[in-house]
Nucleic acid binder design. Structure first.
Lengths: 357, 357
DNA sequence: CTGAAAGCGCTTACAG
DNA sequence: CTGAAAGCGCTTACAG
């Protein structure tokens, strides 16, 4: 009976004659049989202690748990998952978590899934669709039981593959009429339109745009331009920048915009970082913000609205997205909801502007 | 020969007579044998196409890849990992990724590991040691090949368990004389001392502290206080707050501090969020920053130094930590470095203060 | 360059 | 409440 890991190693050596050409795990690693032997029960009972403790007699339970404790046994979920077809793994595919509101979503999502006994496999796709496809396969090879996706702009290939796998999927941070499965998000188009409306209401005549060229930013751009078009404004100066956006990029974009369109009086930036950069550039150029030039960001990285009263921003509750995405998945995983029930939640947004702005 | 997933399901049914009491995976899921049959090779060859393509004849390689493509086969890494004892999984245990510089570290770490063929299992521990222990076991059950840890303040239990498992470990964001294995970080104590030095040099006579009570913040506090003590300042007003820190918490902390110690002329805050909140409170109370009250944060969330020139902050390169942590692990995993080679990297820090401050 | 046999460490589906 | 047998889908270590 192995009482320690080194003793277990000795057992392995003894067994070597029985298993001719394999010492694969090597001397490392306790197995369920080590615990079973030590506790005087079968491996099945040990398995039940972990996965279905109510079905085990109290004394047995306690004895097994003592042995587990003593040996420091940690079940191998690769084996468990393979055998049970339940990996207890959830995949989250996100463009980036650095300097981004997605980090809030992933934070809450991960905490919630973790509490429910799942682990989160994090896949960062950048902003490339091909990357997302590669990552999806890497991630599917772990046989996750659910997937969180960022955005709704996925290739047909990806949508098809995900549908074939048949696991619950939540798309987040965006809306669409045709979700792959479930959805928790808000309309970027409506945000763009709302910011345009806000600018118009403030009396802006020449609104402009600094936007990244990712799908969501471009949806905001569309809403922005179309709302302005309805107001008769068709010439909207714009600067499209490549992600990731940063303060530096924003700082460079504004002068460029102004050189081409000196009379702009409002700028909608694709992110708060861009807006902060634009604000810095405006200061340097002696343009009063917001009186001469209104600047609106996107994201409200908590301190933006708080600390930079000149800026307007759009607040989105990333936390609420993460929480509800987790709930949607868990409801499905726990069998409480049918796969045919397509759930969609629009969490909305808020434009945050100081009175003075 | 199954040519589609539904065809594969039919094969499962046919096999049902051979495998009496099991239909576990159910009709889902292509197996390596499906690909092998279709391509007219053995499963071993298919396995090689994925794991060791150079050892396969070019035509065979192509034929198998075509079938893989056509069927949409994705290998099952639960099975692969179990069989090979290589999970290709790396665990990252971090207190939080929301509003935090850790997100930068995880971003770069994850990208780097992903490029090397590993996936990252993300575990968010909050700031509790017991939570960290629970998470470690959850994570170890996946048999990761390496672990990234935040900080060096772990329980003996955790350090012991990690050592027993024998996989490479990198501790990050801190230094210690006794790392579990490898380390990429910087000295929080030195930062505290350096900020104290900075305040003293500016002529501060009554520096104060607003700090969270997590290990790293307390180390900065120790350095801060001891440097001040060497300058003969022993009464340092302080406000200890519970994580997570936020602008709101900082805004509440400063008035509290001032009510107890009205003559303070400098405050070192545990994070930029706290500093921003303190700045807001100072403004509201009519205290000029930094002339009447200097405020220093920690973290430099990119825009802090950029957009709030009144604040001083401490810049730490989270990106560099993530990159080097990944490199350390990969060097070990690729066998290029011996487990006995204890690698430690101090990435240092920078105090960022405007001339005017 | 390719394959048959055995095994990785669990859990399922029964039976008792 | 407990256990013997079989199998989950791969890969290793040989042999050829």
């Amino acid at each position: 009976m192995p009482a320690t890991k080194s003793a277990a190693a000795a057992v392995e050596h003894t067994d070597a004659s029985v298993r001719p050409r394999r010492t694969r795990g090597g001397p490392k690693g306790l197995r369920i049989t080590d615990v079973a032997a030590q506790a005087g029960v079968s491996p099945i009972t040990v398995s039940r202690v972990f996965n279905n403790p109510e079905s085990v007699a109290p004394q047995t339970l306690e004895r097994v748990r003592e042995v587990v404790q003593k040996l420091g046994y940690v079940p191998n979920r690769l084996a468990g998952g393979l055998s049970s077809a339940h990996s207890r793994l959830i995949a989250a595919i996100v463009p980036t978590i650095a300097h981004s509101l997605f980090s809030e979503t992933i934070q809450v999502f991960s905490e919630t899934m973790s509490r429910a006994g799942y682990e989160v496999l994090l896949a960062l796709s950048g902003y490339s669709a091909s990357n997302e496809e590669t990552l999806l396969d890497a991630v599917l090879s772990r046989r996750p039981e659910g997937v969180l996706l960022t955005g709704v702009a996925h290739t047909d290939w990806l949508r098809e593959r995900l549908r074939n796998v048949g696991i619950p999927v939540v798309e987040t941070w965006e809306t669409t009429e045709t979700p792959i499965d479930m959805l928790v998000g808000f309309s970027h188009y409506e945000i763009g339109a709302a910011v345009a409306g806000h600018f118009l209401q403030r009396g802006a005549r020449h609104p402009a745009l600094i936007s990244a060229n990712d799908e969501r930013a471009l949806a905001r751009r569309a809403g922005f331009r179309e709302r302005l078009a309805r107001a008769g404004i068709h010439n909207v100066a714009e600067k499209i920048v490549a992600p990731p956006s940063s303060v530096e990029v924003g700082k460079g974009a504004l002068p460029d915009l102004l050189s081409r369109a000196p009379d702009i009086d409002a700028v909608f930036c694709g992110s708060d970082l861009l807006a902060i950069g634009a604000l810095g550039a405006a200061r340097r150029m002696g343009l009063a913000v917001p009186s001469r030039l209104a600047i609106c960001g996107f994201g409200d990285l908590e301190f933006s609205a708080e600390t930079i009263p000149q800026l307007t921003t759009v607040r989105v509750d990333g936390t609420r997205i993460g929480l509800n995405a987790a709930r949607f998945l868990l409801d499905r995983l726990n069998g409480g909801r049918s796969p045919d029930e397509r759930r969609v939640l629009d969490v909305g947004f808020t434009i945050v502007a100081r009175e003075s702005a």
